[in-house]
Amino acid sequence: MGKLKKNKKDSPVKAFILPAFVFAVLFMAVGFAAYTKTLSVTGTTTTTAPKPLYFDSSSFDDESNGGTISNMSYTGTELYFKCVLPSVGKTCSFYIEVANIDSTDYQLSTLTMNNVSSTYYDFSVTLYDEADDVVFTSSGATGSGCWLYGYGYDGYLVTVRYKSGSGSKTLYPKLTLGYS
């Protein structure tokens, strides 16, 4: 005769307590899970494609010496800014890039600086492209090779210097690039 085995069916743990615990845990889990909330924000932004060539405002870097640049605005390859020069010898100067998001290569054909009198101010625009550095000044351009290749950038250093006169001066230069 072996030992008498305990009848497991009689165990109250299995019969009642365990199911009760399981139920309680599940119930609490469901209860806690309910206390979550998701709030959403959904927006539709329509982006207007830029022109194939445009001044890239994110590349702007102020390199002025004594002058103050403000109110920069860009329309494709036109650029406007306000320049305050407190005295003779001071400069407003900045670096900026033109982006070409087209696969086509473009060549710089014209460069125009408006609203800057060459009598009182010197201005220069130095173009850094992959071939050469080309400098356009108030007295004419030097150098050659002005290609802006497809999916590429050209960098420009624009400088306006107070040459002669008296007192503080405020200018509103406009730089226009013509590509073909």
Binding site: K37, T42, G43, T46, T48, P50
Partner: peptide
């Protein structure tokens, strides 16, 4: 960069 106009849907879901 886009060479044509784009309609872009943005959804932000905040979980509390």
């Amino acid at each position: 960069m886009p060479t044509t106009n784009q309609n872009i849907s943005i959804t932000i879901s905040f979980k509390f």
